[in-house]
């Protein structure tokens, strides 16, 4: 297939005249670049969190159990697996199978988001807000809601992207490469969560 099909806009002017010198098509390459930038963003947030946590004398440790976060992690990990199956299937040209697994991934993403929101509601019910909580410095809520909120935003955007790309893949507007690009994003979101869990949850576990 030609490079023109791979470019985001299908804008003909962008078609290179001799094919890309790197074998990575532009879209996938751009996704990698986005991931680099987004890694910087998350790192900045996690750095800020660590910096504030170190400086606070009364940092709270409000979490009692890891059940909920373990379930959430399990779901997100599973969704990476289903994504992988979807990408494999699309590579092999098995459209219905690929579509099915992409939708399963999206559904798992939705479940994750719902569980996450339920957890938020629980914490809010216990009196935690962006700026205060019953257990210690208000910064805890600020950091918690900002970081998990940023991650949740990524999950929700990911679900929307999965649905949009998945549906258009089925109708033939997008191809296997596009599936791979969303897959890349989805794995990244999963990976970020693997940093959030120990730093934001396990460190603040009450034992």
């Amino acid at each position: 297939m030609s490079q023109a099909d791979l470019t985001m806009e299908g804008h003909p002017a962008a078609a290179p005249m001799s094919g890309p010198i790197f074998s990575i098509p532009s879209k996938k390459f751009a996704m990698w670049l986005f991931i680099i930038a987004d890694t910087m963003t998350f790192s900045a947030c996690l750095f800020a969190y660590g910096f504030l946590r170190n400086g606070a004398p009364n940092w709270p440790r409000p979490f009692h159990s890891i059940t909920n976060v373990a379930i959430m992690t399990f779901i997100l990990l599973t969704s990476s697996l289903t994504m992988l199956i979807g990408v494999r299937a699309s590579r092999a040209g098995d459209k219905p199978k690929a579509f099915l697994w992409i939708m399963v991934t999206a559904v798992l993403g939705i479940v994750f988001a719902l569980l996450h929101i339920r957890e938020w509601m629980g914490l809010i019910g216990e009196g935690m807000t962006m700026f205060k909580n019953p257990w210690g410095t208000g910064l805890f809520g600020s950091a918690f809601f900002s970081i998990t909120g940023l991650h949740l935003t990524h999950v929700v955007s990911g679900v929307i992207a999965l649905l949009a790309v998945g549906l258009r893949y089925r109708t033939g507007r997008y191809n296997a490469d596009d599936i791979e690009v969303v897959g890349l994003y989805w794995h990244f979101v999963d990976l970020v969560w693997m940093f959030v869990v120990p730093l934001v949850y396990l460190l603040n576990l009450n034992h």
């Binding site: 962008a14 290179p16 005249m17 001799s18 890309p20 010198i21 790197f22 990575i24 098509p25 532009s26 390459f29 751009a30 670049l33 986005f34 930038a37």
Partner: peptide, 18 residues
């Protein structure tokens, strides 16, 4: 500028002529 940088990098690496 992030959007711009994305384009600049991909242009330099991917779109060079023969």
């Amino acid at each position: 500028q992030l959007l711009g940088s994305l384009n600049f990098i991909t242009t330099t690496l991917d779109l060079r002529v023969k």
